[in-house]
Write a protein that binds this DNA or RNA. Structure first.
Lengths: 214, 214
DNA sequence: TTTGGTATAATTGTATACAATTCTGAAAGG
DNA sequence: CCTTTCAGAATTGTATACAATTATACCAAA
């Protein structure tokens, strides 16, 4: 088969991760590698690679009967926010210390796009820009271990975040909170960046846990 | 080939991870899948699976020229401790809340073995029991996301931890600090467990960063 | 009816063959 | 002497064949 710059394994991983974390496959469902071979039209090799990555993130489990979907429970959600409350502020503080002008421009663009989509009532795009904003801060923190720790936690909230920003009032508040974080980072003020990020995570947690019934 | 309860891929992963994190392969070294095929006597399939797991943990990188060893730098070490300072106390607190008697017995045994090996000047065994103590607390926290976040951070300190506990005075203090954490967990006192764990991580960090020259 | 066993099917683990890209070095031309 | 080009080697990505285990279904016997 012809070679691609993005490997099939990577494509399969992203597709499966997205489908599982967005709730397309329910918790408890079982599939097999051969199911995926038929559905996705690629061989077992890239599928197995994707499966192993998902297993490492505890999103699925492989059993003798096939691949068991675990997904993300409400307890996982509480556990995740308890961790993010403690370390996502650190990411914002570090980003405030070391961000470059080019990086700041990238962060600003994601924020302004989020602010653009909020009044349009476009939850999918709002969520996309919301996620990008957080991921950029992870990256710009310059702390690889921190980014590695936060990224999987952030991804696992994906489904619940969409529900959250579908509430227009919350989407609006969230954008305002991002604006505050951005200004602190832009002024290279670590303490303010950390405080506003912690406040933001706290608000997001409260809203998501309140809205979620599972 | 005959089937094993522990897959070849898992064995290869653990061996390579251990060898890289213990410093057997220096940062910057390059190897290829075929090198490992010759050395380890298994086919590319399990080797590739192990390689991908190591890549996901940012311990190695795959390039067009082969597998590049990244290992753990002193900056990584500082970054890691900054995170552990913030969340490892949470693990201790959660463990104090929910630990069972059986789990407590397991934790006690790892502690007593550590205390047994310290006066024998046996750094390898001391480190082994030291690591086990922390990993048990991660597990007993009942917070999978937290355990998933902490375990890779903990593993990356392996090499430096051996140097640290090779100092008899530090090994002795470390065991005493573990004893304090254990007592707090045994008394189901989350606040005391968290405080003593944070203190312990802080001491470990100071000692390791002082001793490490890279 | 229930239980036990056996053959078959289903599933993952492993090895290997093949495809496509990229690196390397040497030769040719300026 | 330097640059460019081209062929071959080295490397990873992918597909597929094979091995071993485990699940399943059916049949027979108590």
């Amino acid at each position: 088969m012809e070679h691609r710059t993005v490997s099939l394994a990577e494509q399969v991983f992203e597709r499966l991760e997205n489908e599982i974390l967005s709730g397309k496959f329910p918790r408890g469902a079982v599939m097999t590698e051969m199911n995926l071979v038929s559905e996705l039209g690629v061989s077992r090799t890239p599928i197995r690679e994707a499966i192993h990555r998902l297993e490492q993130e505890h999103i699925i489990e492989t059993t003798t009967k096939g691949i068991l979907i675990l997904g993300v429970t409400k307890k996982d959600l509480r556990d995740i926010f308890e961790i993010r409350m403690r370390i996502e502020g650190l990411a914002a503080a570090e980003a405030a210390k070391r961000i470059t002008d080019e990086e700041l421009a990238e962060l600003r663009e994601s924020l302004e796009l989020q602010e653009f989509y909020v009044p349009k009532n476009d939850p999918e795009h709002v969520r996309g820009m919301d996620s990008l904003f957080h991921r950029l801060i992870y990256r710009f923190s310059g702390n690889t271990a921190l980014s590695d720790a936060l990224l999987p936690l952030h991804k696992k909230v994906m489904k619940y975040r969409l529900a959250s920003v579908s509430n227009h009032s919350r989407a609006s508040s969230s954008a305002a909170e991002h604006r505050k974080i951005f200004e602190a980072i832009a002024h290279h003020d670590p303490a303010a960046a950390e405080a506003s990020m912690v406040e933001h995570i706290k608000n997001a947690m409260e809203h998501i846990l309140k809205e979620t019934n599972e």
